[in-house]
Amino acid sequence: MGFKLLSKLLVYLTASIMAIASPLAFSVDSSGEYPTVSEIPVGEVRLYQIADGVWSHIATQSFDGAVYPSNGLIVRDGDELLLIDTAWGAKNTAALLAEIEKQIGLPVTRAVSTHFHDDRVGGVDVLRAAGVATYASPSTRRLAEVEGNEIPTHSLEGLSSSGDAVRFGPVELFYPGAAHSTDNLIVYVPSASVLYGGCAIYELSRTSAGNVADADLAEWPTSIERIQQHYPEAQFVIPGHGLPGGLDLLKHTTNVVKAHTNRSVVE
């Protein structure tokens, strides 16, 4: 069995187990497998329904001669939608809004960016022009300005110390501490036991640490421990890039980060 097929099978099995364990909360999309990078042309966006009122959005972007996937989250909030992270750029984010209108038909009224990198804030200006209120932590807003990236308009308070959590509509926002970046936030959907790890969490097929220019490698494993301790009931975990899975993604990420750190020390 090929690795790609095995990865998709694991996603399907995880979703099936969740649907059985929580039949009222989960209505997993039966329309197909989780979209992969090879299936999404740059400039297009796919939506994948995880649970009743919960979707991931998947886009792709060219970077350094390669094409990478990027995940975000959409959560229903009454007759409105909360968006977590842009679709990595203005063109993708405009396509995301169009796809949401086509498939869901509810307005996106608020959006949260989970850290300051372009795959999370690139497209904020498109959201703002569409009347979406954009939010991020003060740290993310400051770092985005320093980096020359787009800056969300509103500040999220109460997320300055490791372990801080605040309720934001249908989700809980959690600051686990520094990891992929010093400002990275985690998003949890309690009604569906869905954990969105953003770039602080890796997919299972990833074996290298990737972009760690703004990471705190020493603190990252401790931050992941905080996530595990705060959300032990999480059933569906979405990484910032690639295929979702279960809580095993947290341990896998820790292993990859520690291996990278150990290699760096040896070198």
Rank of each mutant, 00 (worst) to 15 (best):
G122P: 05
A15Q: 10
N255M: 10
L127W: 00
V194S: 02
P35F: 08
L250A: 02
S205W: 07
T36W: 14
V67L: 15
P176Q: 02
A200T: 07
A90C: 01
F63H: 09
S38F: 12
Y188D: 03
V171W: 02
V194R: 01
V126T: 10
A234F: 03
A25Y: 11
V42W: 06
A19Y: 15
I84A: 01
P239E: 01
M18S: 15
W55I: 00
P107G: 06
Y231M: 05
P221H: 06
L127G: 01
S139G: 11
G198P: 00
L250E: 02
Y68D: 08
L106G: 04
G123A: 04
P232V: 08
I201G: 03
E172R: 02
V257S: 02
S161P: 05
G240I: 07
Y231R: 02
L243D: 15
P41M: 10
G65K: 10
A218H: 14
F236A: 10
L159Y: 04
I58G: 05
E172H: 04
G246E: 08
V54I: 07
I238V: 09
A94V: 14
N184W: 01
L10P: 15
K251S: 12
D79R: 10
I17G: 14
R76C: 05
N149L: 14
V37H: 14
S56W: 15
L106A: 09
K102Y: 09
E145I: 09
A192T: 11
V112R: 03
P232Q: 09
L185R: 02
D214C: 06
L97Q: 00
T140V: 03
L247S: 14
Y135M: 02
V146L: 14
A51M: 07
H230I: 09
A209Q: 10
S181K: 02
R46E: 08
R142Y: 11
R110Q: 11
D64V: 08
A178Y: 06
Q49D: 10
H241E: 01
H115L: 02
N92C: 01
S181D: 01
R120M: 01
I151M: 09
H117F: 00
S137C: 01
Y175E: 01
E203V: 06
I50G: 02
G131E: 07
D77A: 06
A94L: 14
T86C: 04
L195C: 01
Q61P: 04
T134I: 02
A200Q: 03
L5I: 15
L106N: 05
Y34K: 08
V124T: 10
S191T: 12
V75A: 07
G198A: 07
T254V: 12
R206Y: 12
D118M: 07
A51R: 08
I238H: 00
S27K: 11
L24M: 15
D248I: 07
E172L: 05
Y196P: 03
L96Q: 00
I201F: 08
P107N: 10
H117Q: 04
S208I: 12
Q103D: 15
E147P: 05
T93A: 01
